[in-house]
Design a protein around this nucleic acid. Structure first.
Lengths: 344, 344
DNA sequence: CTGAAAGCGCTTACAG
DNA sequence: CTGAAAGCGCTTACAG
């Protein structure tokens, strides 16, 4: 088969252990020996077998990424690729590899995670979602396996290290931004509050209204699809008084509403303002470009990976959670002044 | 450490080799022994160490995915996540894991590939891009390492297995579609023809014009960005006669042009028709929704993975390349009849 | 400073 | 049908 450490040893007339030490650049090997061995490695085209090294060192230098890809929707969601890039950047720098779950159903994913963990294929994991009553989370905690979550855990919050935005604040900020722009009737269109992220954002929206003494909570919980967007827009337009702004918590949701408004001939931002969350190119390239809460998905991924690597290097480190600040990116979708409001 | 095959063997009063055979469900082990051993595995919570198995079987059951993530742009491009999902589906079914490159620069990626290949971390690779004079391609060919490319290779085309669309035909079809809709002045906005995919699409566009006896080739090669889109739209609008339709080869490109047209107050599709390639939710949710060439990215990924797995199972299989058919998805961005043309 | 030896946790001919 | 032994390709105490 391939050339091994033994072949190199024989040819260089040293012991295999010496070759191993040369590879590791062990300080106690003479420069002379190192050069001799390296020359032979060159000649023979030697490359260490990582599998063997991993087995003996009991470390895979690999991180597992657990993602849910349930819906067709999630495939177009820029969050995943951007966060992945953030993780990749840090992990690559720290010489870790990335192994990813492939499964679609919860059971498939669970089994993959069991395999990675028990099969020693990864040293740690990053969970890209947070969900009620998750057997995967359960497993990782039981096994005391190192992992970091992106998003806030619903259960066992004091046992889990996580990286997240302050979603309450983010939603409060953007709602407040609309209020200050003169809007009073502000609809909120978000996702299933079984997920912490949506629960938090709803709460932030409500807080902003309360602080401004606005009574009318106009809360919608919707799936993302063309039809659902049409429905939502129809409902919103029928309200009396009619809302003048919509807070959404997702770019695709924002785009679908924008599209539904367009179909109805409602001009954005003149007749309806709209905001989203995330800030990928989608918000920038939509017509009109959308004002959005930048959640810094790249940084979320980066910090999660960094925290995990820190944990692996110092297993007894103090638990820490990281909040990545959000910021509002102002674009055209709600920048105009309202007749009854202030100029922004 | 963790419980090993030896622990199980001792407790079940059999030899380690027997335990190994039970795990593999070897036919020559009695049902009785199997049950006894399985019971002990249960009790002890035994799980095989995959690393060890991989080392001895010389097979990693893992596929490497090589991707380029150079630009900010590529992060919002739905192609990658969709194709990844296609690969994942097949690989998961076939019990393969997925290892991904993390690097950004060409050198980083190259080194990761060397490591994966020489370090025996993967059994095969899928390249998600095709590029001139690529050292990665060179390496894989030199090492005679199993791989499949998504996209058509520029060099060594007879040595590489690939999965691709017929991009010439796809571009010809969509251009032809516009011609039949009554358009005569059709601009084409595409990417760098150093990449085969763009070269092919340009050619398809030209072919369609030629077949329809249309002289005016209006070819633009552009980066994807807001500014570049504005520039392009400005140039197109200044042309005389002014084009009535634009063929783009990328959803984000399409969106950016749509946005630039919107800024200029040009109505789509009434004053300008526009088409894209790919067909993710972006085309569906844009305003107006875009007519697009569906390249079936999921299937591209799926077929690539399938071809690779076939190759790994039968290394001497006949070389085959797969062309995934494209189809036109009609939406509003160019569906209206032209004053001087036929109704569609 | 270098080598011989044991071992990481499995699998797989080879016996019996 | 099952076991003893060798081996996958490394690393790392332990000697010297």
């Amino acid at each position: 088969m391939a050339v091994t450490i033994k072949d190199v040893a024989k040819r260089a007339q040293v012991a295999p252990s010496t070759v191993s030490r040369v590879i590791a650049d062990h300080p106690k090997i003479t420069q002379e020996t190192k050069e001799k061995v390296r020359k032979v490695m060159q000649e023979l085209g030697y490359h260490p077998n990582l599998l063997a090294r991993k087995l003996v060192t009991q470390s895979s230098q690999t991180i597992g990424i657990i993602r849910k890809t349930s819906s067709k929707r999630s495939l177009s969601d820029p969050f995943f690729p951007v966060a992945l890039q953030g993780m990749s950047d840090l992990l690559h720098e720290k010489k870790y590899s990335v192994l990813m779950t492939c499964g679609e159903s919860d059971e498939e994913i669970y089994h993959e995670v069991v395999n990675m963990v028990q099969g020693k294929s990864v040293d740690g994991m990053i969970m890209l979602y947070s969900q009620d009553n998750d057997p995967v989370l359960q497993l990782l905690l039981e096994q005391d396996f190192p992992f970091v979550m992106i998003g806030r855990p619903t259960d066992h919050i004091d046992k889990v290290m996580y990286v997240d935005n302050d979603n309450v604040k983010a939603a409060r900020d953007i709602t407040d931004y609309l209020i200050r722009a003169g809007h009073e009737y502000i609809a909120y269109v978000g996702g299933d509050p079984r997920f912490e992220v949506h629960k938090d954002r709803e709460q932030g929206y409500k807080q902003a209204l309360k602080l401004a003494d606005i009574q009318s909570e106009l809360l919608f919980r919707k799936e993302i699809s063309r039809d659902s967007a049409r429905e939502t827009v129809a409902e919103i337009l029928e309200m009396n008084p009619r809302p003048t702004a919509i807070v959404t918590t997702d770019e695709l949701m924002g785009m679908s509403l924008l599209s539904a408004l367009y179909e109805r001939g409602i001009r954005v931002p003149d007749e309806m303002a709209i905001t989203t969350f995330m800030d990928s190119m989608l918000s920038e390239l939509s017509s009109p470009p959308m004002t959005t809460v930048d959640i810094h998905a790249f940084q979320l991924g980066f910090e999660a990976a960094k925290t995990l690597v820190d944990l692996l290097e110092k297993p007894d480190m103090m638990k820490r959670n990281i909040l990545v600040p959000t910021s509002i990116v102002v674009r055209e979708s709600c920048r105009k002044n309202k007749t009854n409001g202030a100029m922004i």
